[in-house]
């Protein structure tokens, strides 16, 4: 489904601030795999997602999506394959536009846009059904501007928008990190439901180690632009959070200090 081979990304190449965010990353993702990505701050987790989505160009390496070489394709072309949810709930929606307008734009992801009507009556009915499944009461507020919604509602809407035109690949970048614990759980449950329903191939960055092991089928750990651990199958199911921390210490020679605090959370 997704193949990265020897992908290297360097920020500010040739300057004093040069920083190699990804170093020859090779990763093969099978169709239907749900991969959680963990690692300390600056490990390159978000950069990895951005490189896959085409937000930033890479210095070397190759990216294949569904067998097609997309290394040089810009973000808006790759969007045809990819659904994304950002960490900041404000980034995934257009605040000045209504719920139905946002959904209508998401429904047309990767399709050329012409002078056809932006929303049809049939689509409106479909949006209402999808929104009802969220259980947030948004199905009766199609004409409400998104800016009036809470962060949790906006993020739930963004998850729906990322998946309403079924993507081949779903990228989640700590999409519950900015929400309060209760809302985060709701949005996470919704996300898992949608992933399971459509059998979506997913890359999910998370800071929550417990969630990383519990969700999905495979867990990779990143450190300083490299993948230092790749867990799946029975090996993964045996692993505990404490094991993860130990493995991180061994693999990186560091202590997972900055994320330890987060373990006490949900």
């Amino acid at each position: 489904m997704l193949q990265l081979s020897k992908v290297t990304k360097i920020f500010n190449p040739g300057s004093v601030n040069e920083k190699s965010a990804l170093q020859e990353i090779t990763l093969h993702v099978q169709t239907g795999e749900v991969i959680t990505i963990i690692g300390s701050n600056g490990a390159g987790k978000s950069t990895l997602l951005n490189v896959v989505a085409g937000v930033c160009e890479i210095e070397s390496g190759k990216i294949l999506l569904d067998g097609e070489d997309v290394t040089c394709r810009p973000e808006h072309i790759r969007a045809a394959w990819i659904g994304r949810v950002f960490q900041d709930p404000l980034l995934g929606t257009a605040a000045s536009m209504t719920i139905e307008e946002n959904l209508a734009m998401a429904l047309r992801r990767g399709r050329p846009r012409f002078l056809r009507r932006g929303i049809t009556a049939a689509e409106r009915k479909m949006f209402r059904e999808h929104l009802a499944l969220l259980g947030l009461g948004l199905e009766d507020r199609l004409g409400t501007r998104v800016g009036l919604l809470s962060g949790g509602q906006r993020q739930a809407l963004t998850v729906l928008m990322a998946t309403i035109a079924t993507p081949k690949l779903l990228l989640l970048d700590e999409h519950t990190a900015a929400l309060d614990p209760r809302t985060a759980r709701t949005v996470m449950a919704l996300t898992e439901r949608i992933i399971a329903h459509h059998h979506l191939t997913t890359l999910m960055v998370t800071h929550n180690l417990e969630q990383a092991l519990r969700t999905g089928t495979r867990t990779i750990m990143m450190h300083e632009g490299r993948i230092i651990l790749d867990l799946s199958g029975p090996e993964r199911s045996r692993t505990t959070v404490a094991d993860l921390l130990k493995m991180f210490g061994q693999a990186s020679g560091n202590i997972f200090a900055d994320d330890k605090v987060l373990l006490t959370g949900s």
Binding site: A53, E75, H76, I77, A79, A80, I82, R84, F86, L90, L91, G92, T93, A94, A95, S96, M97, E101, A104, M105, A106, R108, R109, G110, R111, R113, G118, M161
Partner: peptide, 18 residues
């Protein structure tokens, strides 16, 4: 709509293929 979204949230509408 895509034009309006461009003025509202460029990153979002680009991730939707515009």
């Amino acid at each position: 709509m895509a034009i309006r979204a461009t003025g509202d949230n460029e990153q979002m509408i680009r991730s939707l293929g515009v």
